[in-house]
């Protein structure tokens, strides 16, 4: 049934799908390096036309987006550490079958997966705790992902019990077993889960939109949203304005600056993400 023709069209179709998936990214990259004239006349598709980096120069001189990028770096780095510090030890504890109350604690986590947190109750809680307009409002609502917790727990459960037994006989305490034995043997899962958290934090958007109003604290995503929505003449804060550059180019450059770090580490990210998803789906 599937002859040579069928096979060729399969390959062509998939290649086209792959190309169309990345085309919008290549297009925006080309626009960000093109001249205003070329952008307005709609000539830009895959390659920059009349190459120039004016848009980037202006964005960097303006500084707002860079400041927001710096915020995002802080949010991502500190947030990933916080998430991991809360998730990893808890997953380790829940993986211990001998623990008293294990079933109850597991149920507390599992049951919470059945319903989402309402925006308004969450907002009022944040207000009550006086955490609005701080990065805690970004980190705390998703401090521990139940899904990540269970993936990690089942990874710990899959580790050979004899290892720990022999360590116990050698006099190791729970703490030293965790730090000297379990953690070093869990690098693949630690890498995968940290990257799940890190990418989510880099892309953090709604929590910042809901809970942060101080524009100096905004992450790059919300800053970018504001730039994309703004009328043409107020895109930049400086007096030089956007008079001589087509704002489409400026917006494109802002988009590229926001997404560049993700694109740069993508091959690395992707490998660990896939591994993490597969680890998670084994036990479901």
């Amino acid at each position: 049934m599937v002859n040579r023709l069928g096979r060729t069209s399969l390959y062509v179709f998939l290649a086209v799908c792959g190309f169309m998936t990345v085309f919008p990214i290549l297009n925006i990259l080309a626009v960000s390096f093109s001249s205003s004239r070329a952008i307005i006349s709609g000539e830009v598709s895959l390659w920059p036309v009349e190459f120039n980096a004016q848009a980037y120069v202006q964005l960097i001189r303006d500084g707002q987006l860079l400041a927001a990028l710096k915020n995002t770096v802080i949010i991502t780095a500190a947030g990933t550490a916080l998430h991991m510090l809360a998730t990893t030890p808890a997953a380790y504890t829940l993986s211990k079958k001998r623990l008293r109350g294990r079933a109850f604690f597991t149920f507390v986590v599992l049951f919470s997966m059945l319903f989402g947190t309402g925006l308004i109750p969450l907002f009022l809680l944040m207000k009550q705790l006086q955490l609005l307009d701080s990065y805690w409002a970004i980190w705390l609502p998703g401090l521990v992902s139940a899904y990540n917790l269970f993936v990690m727990k089942s990874f710990f459960e899959g580790m050979p019990a004899e290892l720990e037994e022999s360590a116990t006989i050698d006099g190791a305490t729970d703490l030293s077993i965790f730090f000297r034995l379990t953690l070093p043997l869990s690098k693949p899962i630690l890498a995968a889960i940290s990257l799940f958290y890190a990418v989510a934090l880099w892309n953090t958007y709604s929590n910042a939109l809901y809970f942060i109003t101080d524009s100096r604290l905004l992450p790059v995503t919300v800053k970018l949203y504001q730039m994309l929505q703004m009328p043409i003449d107020s895109l930049l804060s400086g007096a030089e304005g956007a008079s001589y550059i087509q704002p489409e180019g400026l917006k494109a450059a802002a988009i590229i600056l926001t997404v560049a770090p993700i694109l740069l580490v993508y091959p690395f990210l992707q490998k660990h993400f896939v591994k993490g998803v597969l680890l998670g789906s084994v036990k479901g």
């Binding site: 998936t21 919008p24 992707q270 993400f273």
Partner: peptide, 28 residues
């Protein structure tokens, strides 16, 4: 590798790309 890529990108960025791509005046 190509197909997975957009999953890693936030909707602000994807939305910005879509708007630019579909723009009636300058979109490709």
């Amino acid at each position: 590798n190509l197909l997975y890529l957009p999953f890693f990108i936030s909707w602000v960025v994807l939305g910005g790309m879509i708007v630019s791509l579909l723009s009636p005046s300058t979109g490709v």
